[in-house]
Every structure is written in structure tokens, then in C-alpha cells.
Amino acid sequence: MRNLLITAILVVLSSTFVYVTTSGQLQFGKPAQTRMDDYFLRHGQEQTGANNIVTAVVFDFRGFDTLGEATVLFVVVLGVGMLFRKLMAEEEEEEQAA
């Protein structure tokens, strides 16, 4: 039953992917909508003063996104630290008990 379900999911997803990639809706080298990116390319330099437009998008136009990303990184390291501190404390306890 479980294997049947997994096979069904994979067949449906792969047929969708194959349809999307071969039906001609997506064409490599010809993006469908470019208005926002053309705006960034034309006005990014005068509005932010950075030559690298990707950095201008990351740190200026989408600054909130980057703030959330930095927070995620901080919280992840906090979580890893808490996990390993707990593990090491348990190791110590087992050592003392044994």
C-alpha cells in the first residue's frame, strides 16, 4: 500500500515536470516577465550606488529578506549550540554515574 502510494506520487510529479519542460511554456534563454528586473538593471546604480546589481537587490531592494535570513542563521546556530550542550552534559552525567 505504502509503496503503491509512493509510486503514484512519483509518477504524477514526474509526468507534471516532463509536461512543463517539454510543452514550450518555459524556454531557456527567454524569460517570460522581465519588467521588474529591467527596472533594477536600469535604475539600480543611481538609486543604491552599487555596481553589483545582485548585491543591490539583496541588501537594498530586498533588505527585509536579508534581515530574516540573517535571523534564521542566528537562530539555527543557537539551536545547534543548545543541542550539543545538552548532549555533552548528558555524556558527563553518564560518565559520573558509571
Binding site: T48, G49, A50, N51, F59, G63, A70, L73
Partner: peptide, 17 residues
């Protein structure tokens, strides 16, 4: 010497990463 706060934000994110 260009870019406004972008180089400073780069340094901040570099330190954090």
C-alpha cells in the same frame, strides 16, 4: 568609495556568516 550602507551591511553579514 561608493554604495552607501551596502558595504557596511556586507561587512556585518560577513561577520555573522
Amino acid at each position: 568609495d561608493t554604495g552607501g550602507i551596502i558595504p557596511l551591511l556586507n561587512i556585518a553579514v560577513g561577520l555573522e556568516v
